[in-house]
């Protein structure tokens, strides 16, 4: 049985000019210990569908789905209090801007211990010990000192490691990473992706990786969902997707990669959609 199952998810936003459909009938599922990548460009609805799972959308959003279940529990039917028991423990999330995700007024040690105390009910002393253990697990250098640091005293890569440490603190079964390396340099990106992949294997977590970067997909995913303008264009195993893409949009995305350039022009998405076959 899959860990997270979503069928026919639609998310609409009420705007001044009427309703806007950000996600339009998307199905997806992720298994235990599986890495699912959701790829798309800006406006494809890739983040919105995961925020809907987390219950983090603003009040202007209307979420409907035929099914949205986590580990057999219906996420749509459960109360906010029930959902809060899942979110942050069984399902956790990390975001694109690691420095902005942390509170600048508190030390990172305080912030991770806060999670350990509230979500896991640890006492002050054991929270500190566990925080240190987690900082070691995510490869933060001189962890004792770093616990006393404020976010601005750490680099972007270190802040993302702190975020990951917080996210894995409760041994989650599902980690959702929304563009976790987009704000980072390529050498740091490699370190963070390697870390996520090794944690994923060690903890046997399901991992949903939201990204716009085909390179990140190629380096991490087991399975891939391609989204465009709120709709699912294609779903395939990672090798099939790169070897034999079915949807014209996926083909367009892959050929727009500069490393796939043949000759002196890059094909663009519009080359593949003459007359707007896909809107």
């Amino acid at each position: 049985m899959s860990l997270l199952t979503i069928r026919n998810l639609t998310v609409r936003f009420a705007t001044a000019t009427g309703s806007f459909t950000a996600v339009d009938g998307v199905d997806l599922s992720v298994d235990r210990a599986e890495v699912l990548a959701i790829v798309g460009e800006s406006g494809s609805g890739k983040s919105v569908s995961m925020l809907a799972v987390m219950g983090l959308l603003p009040d202007t959003a209307t979420v409907t789905a035929d099914e949205m279940t986590y580990d057999g529990q219906d996420l749509l039917a459960m109360s906010d209090a029930q959902r809060r028991r899942l979110i942050g423990r069984d399902i956790t999330m990390i975001f694109q801007e690691p420095v902005a995700s942390l509170n600048p007024s508190f030390t990172v040690g305080f912030q991770i211990e806060e999670v350990l105390r509230f979500n896991l009910g640890l006492s002050g002393k054991s929270a500190r010990a566990r925080a240190l253990e987690l900082f070691r697990a995510v490869g933060i250098p001189s962890p004792e000192e770093k616990l006393k640091s404020y976010p601005h005293q750490l680099s972007g890569g270190q802040c993302q490691r702190v975020m990951i440490a917080i996210a894995i603190a409760s041994n989650p079964k599902l980690l959702i990473a929304d563009e976790p390396t987009t704000a980072l340099d390529v050498t740091i990106q490699k370190q963070i992706l390697d870390l996520l992949m090794s944690l994923q294997e060690d903890y046997g977590m399901g991992l949903i990786l939201i990204t716009h970067d085909m390179g990140v997909v190629a380096e991490t995913a087991d399975r891939v969902v391609v989204q465009y303008k709120g709709r699912k264009m294609e779903e395939a195993d990672v090798l099939d997707l790169f070897e034999n893409p079915q949807s014209p949009y996926t083909r367009a995305l892959l050929s727009a990669l500069p490393e796939h350039a043949t000759g002196d022009r890059l094909p663009t998405v519009s080359d593949f959609f003459e007359g707007g076959a896909v809107r």
């Binding site: 050498t187 190629a218 087991d222 090798l239 990669l257």
Partner: peptide
Amino acid sequence: ALFAATPVTDVDAIRARVARRRASRAAA
């Protein structure tokens, strides 16, 4: 180091990675 850190979208590299992952899972 920059080249080594840049993700590759080459099909052979993906095939090798998928195979490595299968092997490590089977071992686990």
